[in-house]
């Protein structure tokens, strides 16, 4: 096994390293060009911003996959072990959605209390906790 196996393992390591470097370079290039995107493609600022955000998230997930699957060797472990480790992160997906939505609502309430105008505020009787608004202003 020894010598031949080692050579193919090293080849796959260098391949993964190259992919990770290329993805990082791509992210860096997009970060440099993102301000020209809306004028070049004729998109609105918001649409261009969303496109850049989605691209960054997708590239990050690709990079995370290569690190976990190849460098941490999870792709080559027993399937049950891989799922035991990956599936709990569904809770994180839920937490992201929950807290980002809540952050948006919280900001609107703070703005209302500070007397700023906010677009599209839904009528509601609930208010952000007084102590928190006082603290965070």
């Amino acid at each position: 096994m020894a010598a031949a196996d080692g050579a193919s393992a090293r080849k796959s390591i260098y391949r993964t390293a190259l992919i990770l470097t290329a993805l990082t370079a791509l992210e860096f290039t997009i970060a440099g060009l993102k301000h020209h995107l809306s004028s070049t493609l004729g998109l609105s600022e918001g649409a261009a911003g969303l496109m850049v955000l989605v691209t960054f998230v997708v590239l990050t997930i690709f990079k995370a996959f290569y690190i976990v699957a190849e460098f941490m060797h999870l792709k080559h472990e027993v399937k049950v072990l891989a799922f035991t480790i990956v599936l709990p992160f569904l809770f994180i997906l839920w937490l992201i959605i929950g807290l980002v939505v809540d952050g948006d609502y919280w900001g609107e309430q703070t703005a209302l209390q500070n007397g700023f105008e906010v677009e599209q505020v839904q009528p509601t009787t609930m208010e952000a906790p007084a102590t928190l608004t006082q603290y965070y202003g």
Partner: peptide, 18 residues
């Protein structure tokens, strides 16, 4: 994840606060 999601929530909050 908790720390990064806190970052996201507070950033979105600042945005909707203006």
């Amino acid at each position: 994840s908790g720390l990064l999601i806190a970052y996201g929530a507070l950033r979105v909050r600042a945005g909707s606060q203006g």
